[in-house]
Amino acid sequence: MVCWRVLPARDLSLRRWDDEWVASDAISGDTHLLSLAAGIIVIRLQAGPVTTTELTAALMGTGQAEGGTVQECLDALAALELIEPCPA
């Protein structure tokens, strides 16, 4: 079972407006524009590691888990080096 977490070397701040988020990492100085689903994922992961299944369930409740949305978001967030897979 795949589990995800925020990279330990990140200090993320997030703010949401309408259906988009802005995430800023105080360590790297980078700021990213995120979709609604991606922002929700980061918020969940800030509380601790979560499995893909649990994330999908969490996003179902927001109507953001259609199709490949969750995996696409996870891949995109990993590519931005904000999150990474971790042992369950």
Partner: peptide, 19 residues
């Protein structure tokens, strides 16, 4: 302009935002 996008554009026009 959507606010999140306004944020990104404003940040790109800041001199010391990252600092």
């Amino acid at each position: 302009r959507p606010k999140a996008r306004a944020f990104m554009e404003a940040a790109s026009n800041a001199f010391n935002y990252s600092l």
